[in-house]
Amino acid sequence: MYALASGVNCRAIVYRRDWAETPVEGWGVQEFGEWAASMVGPNRYAFGFEAKTGDGRGSSNVLPMLWSAGGNTVVGEPGAFELGFDAEVLTTMYQFYYDMVHTYGATTTDVATWGWEETDGGFSEGILGAYSVGPWIKSVAEQYPEVHENIGVAPLPNLGTPSTFWECSSYMIHADSKKQEKAWEFLLVRGEEYQSEVTVARGGLSPLKALNQGTIESDPEYLGVFAQQLEIAGEPAPVPAQPFMNNLFYPAMQELVLRGTDPAEMAETTMTQAEAVLAEVNG
């Protein structure tokens, strides 16, 4: 039984079905890279990702890659966390981003400055063929019928172990609540009515999974694929990812992409800077 809640952020690759063949299940870097490269065309990029410093969403794209390569941001107990990665893990992860740009030519070097605005916007406008995102791209792509009608969903590529990102910030309205209308008003203000109606159906909410099941079954090609990803979904580390993203991973990804720095060399550089970030996290 799968469930998707309002505000859920379960990651998969969304892609243009009219631009690419049905992807291979459980694909690695090579399969993914070749598949993505087949979508490249004039003024058309195949695969996008966020690497702009400060981007709040890039972490949920990068972390599955880190987990898939066998690492994490930290391990251990609060106050005494240790680094959850080493140079080998980072090299594997960095190699993926390096290859997407320099080996497969799946995207422009400009991607190093992209934030979620460029990935969401590029995909919706038909400039970008694929990127990692939560389910709700379908609602924002509604303005562009050609894109909306051709959205396909596939698992994220893996770097050793299939993995994805799961984050739930759902709002539940109790079926017996006397303030149901107020609660719905709140959701409206949040602009999440669409998501809520898709997933929970107005009228009350009890066990989340049970209510969502029917919705997912009604849209197996889209929501169903996202829901299936929950089997391999990791959860964010018990510390904020942003210090790692802003100080280590994003700058490294920018170096890899813009300057073509060797991934192994970049990994070593990251390791020399990582202790300072860990100290910040440990307070």
């Binding site: 702009k52 410093t53 400060g54 190093a112 400055t113 700058p251 920018q254 170096e255 813009l258 300057r259």
Partner: peptide, 8 residues
């Protein structure tokens, strides 16, 4: 325009 980027 750039937020300080690319690459500072």
């Amino acid at each position: 325009a750039t937020g300080g980027g690319p690459l500072n």
